[in-house]
């Protein structure tokens, strides 16, 4: 909770700062730019948080996003499927990729870093194969999804917010979430407590794959096309957002809400820097610095909290 508040504080400070430096930053147009890019990034950050909390990592989310939307695009443009069937096919693709990740990690007790690195390559290859390496233009048949809005908020954005809340509830209120956090803290202890850790990890990887596909659908709706190159590097942005949100890379600690605040902070930073005229190389340099600073700040925050609570 305290952590969430400090993230909101950073966010407000950043927004005010950019608002002072640039006349256009605090306008609805620039806020809309940020909000438009959010659904995909939010959904991937949620997926990454779930996996990181369980002490694992999923480097394949960007590629799984691409192959899922490739399937969706081809189903609509070349096979002439209806949009619900095509979306279902896209989501199933993501779910299967996640299940494969999870099954391999669990069956051979392999580090997920390597397994999902493999899936990152493989799924990207799958995206090219499915689409024949060409962007599939779908147009109005799918674009209307992104145009639905309620109180000025787009449907994908609302869906992403709902997913953030669902994931937070999953982590804090359900048995599965509790088990994932416990596994991320001490997997052997959880196994010896009689819990089937393999089933939990498989479920988490499957969820991550499914969420990556959901993020893919959101992106297709916004761009009205499916691009096999989509999502390149998104896994790293998702990790960065989760870490800024205080998720522990070694597992055992993380919050979907805080990770999503991390996404918003990264988005504000990127848009704000562009608007005050910072060039892309400098922008990346600043963003990199912010990620590392966030982790350092977290170390101090923990130390401080630890010293307060210590009662040896």
């Amino acid at each position: 909770m305290r952590e969430g508040l400090s993230l909101v504080g950073v966010l407000v400070a950043l927004s005010l700062g950019f608002g002072l430096l640039s006349e256009t930053f605090l306008t609805s147009a620039s806020l809309a730019t940020i909000a438009n890019q959010l659904p995909t990034a939010l959904t991937l950050a949620v997926a990454m948080t779930l996996v990181l909390v369980a002490g694992e990592i999923d480097l394949s989310v960007g590629s799984v996003l691409a192959v899922s939307q490739g399937v969706l695009g081809v189903a609509m443009t070349q096979l002439g499927w209806s949009w619900p069937a095509a979306i279902a096919a896209g989501l199933t693709t993501g779910l299967l990729a996640g299940l494969v990740n999870g099954a391999i990690v669990v069956r051979w007790a392999l580090p997920s870093f390597i397994v999902t690195l493999g899936m990152m390559e493989a799924a990207r290859g799958g995206a090219y194969l499915v689409t024949g390496s060409r962007t599939q233009y779908i147009g109005a048949d799918i674009e209307w999804l992104a145009d639905i809005s309620w109180l000025g908020l787009s449907a994908p954005f609302l869906a992403a917010v709902a997913l953030v809340i669902l994931a937070e509830v999953l982590l804090t209120r359900t048995v599965l979430g509790r088990q994932a956090i416990a596994i991320g803290t001490n997997e052997e202890a959880v196994r010896l407590a009689g819990i089937d850790t393999r089933r939990v990890k498989l479920t988490i990887f499957a969820l991550a794959g499914l969420l990556a596909a959901v993020a893919g659908v959101m992106q297709v709706a916004r761009l009205a096309s499916a691009d096999p190159n989509a999502g390149t590097g998104f896994e790293l942005s998702a990790i960065a957002a989760a870490v800024i949100g205080g998720t522990r890379l070694m597992g055992g600690r993380g919050s979907a809400v805080n990770s999503s605040l991390g996404v918003v902070i990264m988005g504000v930073l990127a848009t704000g820097l562009t608007q005050i005229g910072v060039q892309d190389p400098t922008k990346r340099l600043v963003t990199g610095g912010v990620i590392v600073l966030a982790v350092i700040a977290d170390v101090y925050r923990q130390r401080w909290a630890g010293a307060r609570q210590h009662a040896a």
């Binding site: 048995v175 001490n186 010896l192």
Partner: peptide
């Protein structure tokens, strides 16, 4: 340490672990 404790988590979570269901 290795076979039982969830070190950073609260006592509550440690005690409840085997009975979540």
């Amino acid at each position: 340490y290795r076979q039982g404790l969830l070190g950073t988590l609260p006592v509550r979570v440690n005690v409840a672990l085997a009975c979540l269901g």
